[in-house]
Amino acid sequence: MSTTPTMARKERERAAREELILEQARRMLAESGYLDLNLDELARRVEYSKGTLYQHFSSKEDLVMAIAVRGLQARAGLFERALGFRGANTRECVQAISVAAGQFCHAFPDYFEVETLVKLSSFALRASELRRNQLGLAVGRGFRCVQGIVQAALHLGDLPAHAHLAPERIAFALASVSVGSEIMGRLPELRLLAGIDNLAAVVRENQSLLLDGCGWKPLRSEYDMAAVDRRIRAEVFPEASWLDV
């Protein structure tokens, strides 16, 4: 069936309405947190009925998961930008992904918090199948960027083959170290105990420790990481003002 001008206009209006709802809900989450996210108040702020909200989102959890999808898509977009960096080797290429991950946390701190929230099993149970599928696609989009660099490193010999670790497992380990360090580093008490005053730098140090442990050449001690950071910022992420270069 062909799309008529009227249908196309209605689709645009629906998309614009959904974007308005998502943006206002994101702001409310940042202001007050999940427990105080009230759909009646959200409806008042966007000037639509509560019933209209449910035309777009099946539940409060579905709405929050939709916000998480936006964040994951933003991160994947940054990862895809990082793939454009002309690294001298795959270790430099994965460093560009590291900068992309840091830029995401710096530019979208509230999205990172929402992403952490939707990892709870209750969200998956109460969100729609459509939203769960969107979440999976967004996660996969970013993961494949990292996995592709791992596969290239194995092919070129920058990364020695590990009989017990497939490329996707190495990519998963890198993601786990990155996200886990970010989550734990947001606890003020733990930062104090660990003597952390620059979380972004520590997250990247942890990534380097993992890469060195896997034998990914060149090792951290064998090249100028700061010089590569300067090139990454100049070529790909000029907005990364947090990067200490």
Rank of each mutant, 00 (worst) to 15 (best):
F85N: 04
D62H: 02
G33A: 00
R45W: 06
L20C: 04
A66C: 03
V94M: 05
Q73W: 02
A25P: 07
N198R: 10
P188V: 01
A124P: 02
C145E: 03
I149G: 01
D197L: 04
T90S: 14
L165M: 09
P218N: 01
A74D: 09
T116S: 05
L187Q: 09
L20V: 08
L219S: 13
A227D: 15
A201S: 13
E11N: 13
E205W: 11
T116H: 00
W242F: 07
F108V: 02
A161C: 01
R131A: 05
R9V: 12
I21F: 03
Q134D: 13
Y54I: 02
R12K: 12
L192F: 07
V118I: 15
F172W: 12
T52Y: 11
L156V: 07
R220G: 01
S208K: 09
H106E: 08
Q73C: 03
K119A: 08
D244I: 05
E61W: 03
K60E: 09
V118C: 07
L165V: 00
H164A: 06
Y111G: 08
K217Q: 14
R81M: 09
L42N: 00
G140P: 12
L209Q: 12
P238D: 04
R169Y: 14
E222N: 02
A100G: 13
F85S: 01
L63M: 02
G185V: 05
E182A: 11
L190Y: 14
R17A: 06
G102E: 02
V69L: 11
L154F: 07
D36L: 03
V146I: 15
M225L: 05
A96N: 12
A175H: 11
T3S: 09
L120C: 01
L120Y: 01
S2K: 02
E19D: 04
A138N: 01
L72K: 11
M184D: 05
E23H: 12
F79M: 14
L154K: 07
G180H: 06
G84A: 15
L42P: 00
G157D: 00
F172T: 14
G142D: 02
R27W: 00
R141H: 13
N206A: 15
E129M: 06
G215W: 09
A127S: 15
E47H: 14
T4A: 03
L211G: 05
A138V: 05
D244Y: 06
Q95H: 12
A152R: 06
L120K: 00
E31V: 06
